[in-house]
Design a protein around this nucleic acid. Sequence first.
DNA 1: GCAATAGTGTCTTTAAGACACTATCAT
DNA 2: ATGATAGTGTCTTAAAGACACTATTGC
Lengths: 241, 241
Amino acid sequence: MRAPGLLEARQSLAPYARPAVAVDLVILTRVDEALHVLLIRRGEAPFAGRLALPGGFLRVGDGVEDQGEDLDRAAARELQEETGLAPGDVLLEQFATFGRPGRDPRMRVLSVAYYALVRPEVAQRVRAGGDAAETCWAPVAELAGSTLAFDHGHILEVALGRVREKLDTSSLAFSLVPESFTIPELRAVFSAVKGEPQDPGNFRRKVKRLVEDGVLETAPGRRRTASKPAALYRFRAAPRR
Amino acid sequence: MRAPGLLEARQSLAPYARPAVAVDLVILTRVDEALHVLLIRRGEAPFAGRLALPGGFLRVGDGVEDQGEDLDRAAARELQEETGLAPGDVLLEQFATFGRPGRDPRMRVLSVAYYALVRPEVAQRVRAGGDAAETCWAPVAELAGSTLAFDHGHILEVALGRVREKLDTSSLAFSLVPESFTIPELRAVFSAVKGEPQDPGNFRRKVKRLVEDGVLETAPGRRRTASKPAALYRFRAAPRR
DNA sequence: GCAATAGTGTCTTTAAGACACTATCAT
DNA sequence: ATGATAGTGTCTTAAAGACACTATTGC
């Protein structure tokens, strides 16, 4: 009981072999002034023993009646499986898809890549994934030498470039500080992402403008530190500009 | 004669059904002060008779020995097939991947989406695609009402957002003017993409800065028009700032 | 000459960079 | 009291927006 046109269309698609599709995650957090990425050590071939980005295969269902899970949902599921973190704890955004033939020696695999930005206090809750693999936070600046599995080094570079691009023009930075944060904490995010120190005075002026524009608001309490306590701020809404 | 680890790995992948993967193109050019997108009218179900973005399926080979074509190459091939344009004539960049279950009623299909920016004089060379379907340039501003096939309306929106974002921070605009262009021509690109007129004086000042910075250089000749001829410029290198 | 569009100049506001300085906390 | 870090103020330069004005071409 199918329309002929539909049948034809389906047949015209049938000849094409299909790639496997994975979702890989660049999970970033900030430790002091350095950006860190979550890596897992692979237990199996290929690239056994090498560090890799966490990820997994997209669930497609039977492909017709049940078309499976959404890409964003697959990314959130992988994040949950690998770190125990729920979406809502993190900013999770797709940034590119990688599909060079040969990037996985076993078979044709596309990787839809997401970056996840994790607040520092949440990052501490991360526990080893269900695959029981060894996971660790690695400082991205010191990763230049070591080669990651597959093309994950390249994927990481692209992710960092994108995060750097969006830092000044989106509200992305607020996902790398606690919900209530101090100006020096936010400044540390900018230092870590841009890889160069930010002037305290000028940075403070920029934050003040955001408060005036209603993007940020003051939050109750102060951050207790080893010296003078700092005032707290909190994100309100809408990307700036 | 396979390593056991590899066999295990392959088997662990086998249970997963695979999605079909298409590459879809948002082909943009500028006509006067309005941005236009190339659409094709679908001849087959689903969405027969509706306008859609050009695109096609990724070639994957047998998936092991021959892993098929690269994503960028697939996009260039589709562009060639649908318009007759060669890469080099256009700027072609991947911008996002769409995979909502149900976006294609036939089966699970992911769409890796590219935008292509076409110079106006090149756009005139575009001829109907090999699929013999009707193709046309549609002004994007007047497309609000009409619903495109699949989620192509959404894909178009995302493409436009991305192009708008990158207009001021990349050399993308120079792909929407002739290789030698006048300041008013470039200004028309900015007007079309941003959707609002650009001040002639201020815009000229911005271009002058690019010349001083070595991003642009003067080109020989002048553009003959109905009134005063305009001086020509040409792109030299590197995205600005 | 005249219409049309290229091209110039000026005034104001906003934001960034550099950097000296003051204030307030824990110990 | 003192060291450390939070927070303030100022000077300069770069760039954006608004807008009045002049110059050069085709017809």
